[in-house]
Design a protein around this nucleic acid. Structure first.
Lengths: 188, 188
DNA sequence: GATCGCCTTGGGCGAGTGCCCAAAATCGAG
DNA sequence: CTCGATTTTGGGCACTCGCCCAAGGCGATC
């Protein structure tokens, strides 16, 4: 299959793009550095993708979706205790300076300037929020829907603030966050 | 005074830069569009500033400092009730799509790639956190220091998520946030 | 009015940009 | 092996980038 090889090049370009967005910022990714990182000629970028913008959108959305999916899968059948460990784990895995955190923020920002990306991100976030809400409800948290929204936002906010506040560790934040889940976690 | 006029041009450049960072993103601000927005010749940028990078740093830091200062001043002698109103007011003033919110996020991101900017932002945030901590302590919130860190991060996270979640209004978020302040606000 | 120093202009330099395209390489089908 | 289609290459086009600089404008001081 020739399609096999084509797919592999596409994926290498997408992976390189995700790396470079985090390193250099959305607007700092050029066709040439992208091609070099992916190990292909500069012309290939516009052979496999209609535009650099489209490539960046697809790369960011693909990477962000993968991370969210993994989190969602783990959360799916988790108990209250397991869910909290999951949160805590996420908090010190994504410190704000790591590529994944930066890519998230870059993507949020880019979504503000690209309608199509914004729509896709909105849908992704909504799907995840449904899962989070279900878990909160099952755990016995009072207002699961609003709590899920705020909790998701707070997690991203913590990643945004972490590089600017070295004392903002996961251990410091989790006891406070637990107050958001009042009533459900006193046994923890 | 010739210095008078010089200062005015500098400030016009800084103001134009703050606008453009929000509109086009940090890397999307060029010397030429910046000069045009400020109403001056393109060469003036490098007469008044050592580099475009230095100009952007100063502009962003200046604008962000002004916003934080204003919030700090208002919070300084506020009661528990007034403080909560202040939070609520901030939440629906900065919706995430407005120039101020975007500028904040752009600046956080840029700080990750510029040591000097990161240092200055860290100090600014630390100063504000002290004030927030004092207010929380005076209000009777349990763990004021950690709570201040998480609360500040959560506010920024909400602004990040708002454009992607239309249902995330200030009214929906505030009751949940109030749980962070358990024990102090049951009269509210 | 002449002079001096700060402010401002606009053009120019080399480098880098997204995108395009003719030509070469590669590969599966016959 | 040959042929046709697909994939890949690298150079080129028109443009923008940050930064520099010679030239002129301008206001304050004698």
């Amino acid at each position: 299959m020739t399609t096999q090889r084509t797919q592999e090049v596409r994926e290498r370009l997408l992976a390189a793009a995700a790396e470079l967005i985090a390193e250099r910022g959305w607007a700092g990714v050029s066709t040439r550095v992208l091609a070099e990182r992916a190990g292909v000629g500069p012309g290939l970028v516009h052979y496999h993708f209609s535009s650099l913008r489209a490539l960046l959108n697809e790369a960011a959305l693909h990477a962000v979706t993968a991370v969210v999916q993994e989190g969602a899968d783990r959360l799916a059948g988790a108990t209250a205790r397991e869910g909290l460990d999951l949160l805590l784990g996420a908090l010190d895995a994504y410190t704000g300076g790591d590529p994944v955190s930066v890519l998230f923020t870059e993507t949020y920002l880019a979504a503000g300037r690209d309608e199509e990306l914004r729509r896709a991100l909105t849908r992704l976030l909504a799907d995840f929020r449904v899962l989070l809400t279900d878990w909160l409800r099952a755990t016995g948290v009072p207002d699961p829907d609003a709590t899920a929204r705020v909790l998701a936002a707070a997690m991203d906010g913590l990643m945004l603030h972490r590089p600017l506040d070295p004392s903002l560790t996961a251990e410091a934040a989790v006891p406070v966050l637990r107050r958001l889940l009042t009533g459900a976690v006193e046994e923890y």
